[in-house]
Design a protein around this nucleic acid. Structure first.
Length: 648
DNA sequence: TTAGGGTTAG
């Protein structure tokens, strides 16, 4: 005779689906199903994902519930929870509608979370009404679930209404409403909520750290972390991840070491974050150490850790190690495939990438985008276009990154025709022209010499960040519209949404060089340093040297080269040499020429220029010596040389 | 029953 106690004992020993089915059969045969309590014990077992590594299919729970003679709210809730947790949240409401028992206080939070996972806010509102009607309005768990549901569905106002209506909330309520503002990225409200909280729990601190991390507010995060009263693994991980996503990889790693030093256990998420940080540092040692640690902690079989490691080894230019991980992983997901494909592309293994991409079972838009941008990076822009067309043919919707990549393919090919087609696609599907997307369109039109379209894109943009101003200023300069380019710079200075940066000055300086505007160039060169505190880079110097040299200020150009904090590159020397030649300054020219010929012994152009300078001074022997080290012998074109050559 | 940390594509 099977009793509830015996049943429980059986269930505890149960290790396989087959065994569970046997118990199930005995259970039905013994008539214990009439006992709602006993039935609920079995139901709990069949429905709970955490109890067994082999959760039974949901229909078992449902069938079992139908067999129970007089099910109570508990048994129904168990099945509702099973539906929610087995990826069938859409079955919850129909099940609720035909529920054979009266719902209790546990029922509504389950239904609300089911709606939240589906993003079904309208149904959530209906459930909210039902719960109120059944008198659960002031239930803490319901209120918390409601806040979380409304915030997940983007209805922050409704979440706040629930919070404000409540009499006395617990820490979970505070954390939930805080998390709502964090998810919405509302720093001001989140900070206010955080300061008002009666207790700043580790959960609340973690939320705030995540928000600061996403917004690049590393100093605020660090201050909060250092002063936090309560910390746990989540808090440490949030801080590590904050460093990681803001490019402070060394800090991320040392904080991870600190966490271990304090004896905190390392879990999957912390591992993923720190491996991601190691991937971005050229020193590979920390990365290998993390891999070893992950293996020791048994975390290396987790697919997320494997993915982070695949990415890490790809960054270390070790595709073989990455591929080994990929081949040994037993539950690969989209991340694994996409990371491996990206790894091949990053390492120039274009063929392997294509092969793996072809073999990938169901490609998502990241897979397609990875492949498209990889083609562009590997100088296969026309291939990028054909991949893009197959993507559309498969009915996959490109996202902003895809579009930026494909536009840059058009830019590379200077293909106005294809670029226009993509632009048409963007218009037709009403994509929001963000700063990034707009900038790439402006770049494309500028490169293709289609200034009107470029300016039209710019004029129509709602948000105008620094990059799109730069694209316009640089593009106009590139196309020789110097005055217009400089006018745009003045406009940009007045704009509140953009600030000139390094690239902006590259644009205006090259515009000045184009038009030989020495004074304007000098003004910009000072402006960037004194007003905007930008240190000129090697290109800025090169531009100024060229500008001064061309205008005949050869000595000033030489002084500028000498004042450079970095060693001048070939274009800078070349510009100076060119101006020496043009303006007949053989003294400087000789010095510079020798420098250049040493720096780039295979550049015949420099040899020719130097030869000309020697020739103008009648230093024919030097011309002859130089000739010996040249490949193309252009030296014979130097006026007068053929006459004297035989006498040397 | 309810809250909190992470990875890939540009």
């Amino acid at each position: 005779m099977l009793t509830v106690t015996l049943l429980e004992a059986h269930l505890e020993r149960c290790g396989s689906a087959r065994h569970l089915l046997q118990i199930h059969a005995q259970f039905v045969a013994s008539g214990l199903l009439a006992d709602a309590f006993a039935a609920s014990r079995l139901l709990r077992f069949t429905a709970d994902t955490s109890l067994l590594p082999l959760p039974l299919p949901f229909h078992h729970s449902l069938r079992l519930l139908r067999l129970v003679h007089r099910p109570n709210a508990f048994s129904c809730n168990t099945v509702l929870r099973a539906a929610r947790d087995h990826g069938l949240p859409h079955l919850c409401l129909p099940l609720y509608a035909s529920m054979p028992a009266l719902p209790d206080e546990y029922t509504y939070p389950i239904l609300i979370t089911a709606c939240a996972t589906r993003g079904a806010v309208d149904e959530g509102r209906q459930v909210h009404c039902h719960a109120v009607r059944h008198g659960f309005e002031c239930n803490l768990y319901l209120a918390n679930a409601l806040m979380s549901m409304y915030s997940a569905c983007g209805c922050l106002g409704d979440a706040r209404k629930v919070f404000d209506a409540g009499p006395m909330w617990d820490t979970v309520s505070w954390n939930t409403i805080l998390a709502a503002y964090v998810q919405a990225g509302d720093v001001a409200q989140a900070v206010e909520m955080f300061t008002q909280m009666p207790k700043r729990t580790a959960a609340a601190v973690s939320s705030m750290l995540a928000l600061f991390g996403r917004r690049g507010m590393v100093d605020e995060a660090r201050k909060l972390f250092d002063r936090a009263e309560y910390k746990n693994v989540f808090t440490w991980t949030a801080m590590i991840s904050c460093f990681q996503r803001n490019g402070m990889f060394t800090e991320a790693f040392s904080l991870f070491s600190g966490m271990r030093g304090e004896g905190w256990p390392v879990d999957e998420v912390a591992m993923v974050s720190v491996v991601a940080a190691c991937a971005r540092v050229e020193i590979t040692q920390n990365g290998y150490m993390c891999h070893g640690l992950a293996a020791k902690a048994g975390l290396d079989s987790r697919v997320n850790v494997q993915n982070a490691l695949i990415h890490m080894y790809s960054s270390f230019l070790d595709v073989v190690a990455a591929r080994r991980l990929f081949d040994t992983g037993h539950c690969l997901d989209h991340f694994s495939w996409n990371s491996m494909i990206a790894g091949y592309l990053k390492n120039g293994c274009f063929k392997d990438a294509k092969e793996l991409f072809g073999a990938m079972p169901d490609k998502d838009n990241v897979s397609w985008t990875t492949m498209i941008s990889g083609c562009v990076q590997n100088d296969q822009s026309s291939e990028a276009l054909s991949v893009f067309n197959s993507m559309l043919a498969q009915g996959i919707k490109p996202n902003e990154v895809t579009l930026v990549s494909i536009i840059s393919a058009c830019t590379n090919m200077s293909s106005l025709e294809q670029g226009k087609l993509i632009h048409e696609y963007i218009r037709k599907h009403q994509y929001n022209i963000t700063v990034v997307l707009g900038t790439s369109l402006i770049d494309m039109y500028m490169k293709c010499g289609c200034l009107e379209s470029a300016l039209e894109v710019f004029d129509r943009m709602e948000q105008r960040g620094t990059p799109c101003w730069n694209a316009v200023i640089v593009g106009l300069a590139m196309n020789g519209l110097v005055t217009k380019s400089l006018d745009m710079f003045s406009e940009m200075e007045l704009s509140s949404t953009a600030t000139p940066n390094e690239i902006t000055f590259t644009g205006v300086l090259s515009a000045c060089r184009h038009a030989g505007l020495v004074e304007e160039g000098q003004r910009f060169f000072k402006l960037m340093q004194h007003k905007y505190h930008i240190l000129p880079n090697i290109r800025h110097y090169g531009c100024m040297v060229d500008l001064l040299g061309r205008a005949g200020y050869v000595r000033e150009a030489e002084d500028l080269i000498k004042s450079m904090p970095m060693s001048p590159d070939v274009p800078a020397w070349g510009a100076l040499l060119g101006s020496c030649w043009k303006h007949g300054d053989s003294e400087v020219g000789e010095r510079v020429g020798r420098e250049l010929v040493n720096l780039d012994p295979h550049h015949d152009g420099f040899h020719t220029m130097l030869s000309n300078i020697y020739a103008s001074e009648g230093m024919w022997q030097c011309v002859k010596d130089l000739r010996g080290s040249m490949k193309q012998r252009h030296v014979s074109k130097i006026p007068g040389f053929s006459v004297v050559e035989s006498s040397l």
